[in-house]
Amino acid sequence: MTRIEEDYRKSGEIPPPPPEWVNALESVSKLKSGGDIPRKLLEDIHKSIQKIHDKTLSEYRRSYEERHKILKAAQPAWRSVDKLASEMEKKMLTLQGNAKQIDGHITKYEGMRTRDSKTEHALTTSAFVQFFISGLVMVIAMGGAFINYKLIALPMSEMVGASDYITDSLKTSDVAALVIILMEASMGLFLLESLRITQLFPRIASMDDRMRHRLMLASLIFLIILAGIESSLALMRDMLITDKASLMRDLASVAPVVEDGWFTRIPMAGQMIMGFVLPFALAFVAIPLESTVHSLRTVIGVLLVQSMRGLAFVIRFVGVMFKRIAKVLELVYDIPIVIPIMIENWVKALRGNVSDKGQIKSGSTS
């Protein structure tokens, strides 16, 4: 900025100095007598004026050229200043948006600190909605992954070996097809992480731009390679199905079906396109996966709290029930025990009456 100000100051227009012949003309005009002297003076003044004019004009042009050179040299600086100003404007707009988001997060945080029921309910509802929506998208993505698996399972069995088993029921070809699908999902995850669309791995987001761009290019190249491999496997699947159908026709002694040209190639082209597109579609599963991971903590926490509350209610109910059962058992115990007690009291009462009568008789005889 200091350099630009100095160049701008240097490029300012400097007015030419006042001509020196003005005073001379005033002196000549004051002469009263004519003759050769005034004429010679005027000729000399004319020559001087012409020289001064040429000199002043050349200096004026030279100063203009210098100012133009200064302005031309300052043009890249002005362009850089304009670029910086536009970038600063964009950053200020971004900063303003981030400030609004921070204000919203701070408001939520204050509500969480004060244990505001409204804020907790809003956060819980938002987490559940996000969890169910992302779960629905994940289910759809799993359907796409299943179709993707079906496209490459048959050709992988021919490549790896259909009779090769890892366990009694788990084929090596199935595991290989599943590994390819998981690698596609991983490359898509790294691609979205390097683009800072998702933030499941903070270390990737904190990389410098150069390393992040390299990771993005590497992930994209690997994803394209895997998509090409899957497209070729889809082509191989169509060829295997065609060969199997031809073999079945040969075994059944049926005349071969005449092909109808490009019309019969449509399923093969569709499978190849699907095999190339599905890996890129599967790459976007990282977005609902991030939403699921972030909302799963809240969902699990709420479910645990509700489970503990339900367990506490059940334990309290069982405790009250056992307490009431103890009271009932006590009353039930009183029912059979009260009869012997009543008989005992009745016997004691009879014995007391007999002893009282004996004492009365002995007192009367005495």
Rank of each mutant, 00 (worst) to 15 (best):
K118D: 11
D238L: 01
P288E: 02
L84F: 05
Q96S: 15
G188Q: 00
A153R: 11
I140H: 07
K348V: 00
M187Y: 04
R9N: 14
K361R: 10
E26C: 00
T114I: 06
A218Q: 10
V332W: 10
K30D: 07
V277A: 05
M321R: 13
M142E: 13
I70D: 04
Y8E: 15
L71M: 13
R297Y: 13
S291K: 12
V314N: 07
K90T: 11
F317Q: 12
S364A: 10
R214A: 06
I45Y: 03
E66M: 03
S48F: 13
P202A: 03
A24G: 00
P19A: 11
S295E: 01
M308D: 13
A205S: 11
K100D: 14
D243G: 02
R203E: 11
I204A: 01
L31R: 15
L189V: 01
L251K: 11
N98V: 05
E65Q: 13
V254L: 15
S169H: 14
D250N: 12
G301S: 14
P19H: 08
L311C: 05
L311V: 04
V302E: 14
S63L: 13
M342D: 09
F222T: 05
L296F: 14
W78H: 12
F317Y: 11
L233T: 01
H105K: 14
D174N: 14
H68N: 12
V137N: 02
I37G: 11
D7N: 14
A99R: 12
H105L: 15
S163N: 15
W262K: 01
S29C: 09
R3T: 14
H68F: 10
V299F: 02
V81T: 06
D174V: 04
L178S: 15
S231M: 09
P38A: 05
L191G: 03
A153C: 02
R249L: 07
S246H: 08
A141R: 03
V179R: 05
R113V: 14
G363E: 10
A73L: 09
L136H: 08
A227N: 00
E66L: 06
E5L: 14
G135F: 09
I181T: 10
G35N: 02
Y109C: 08
D334V: 03
W78V: 12
I335R: 11
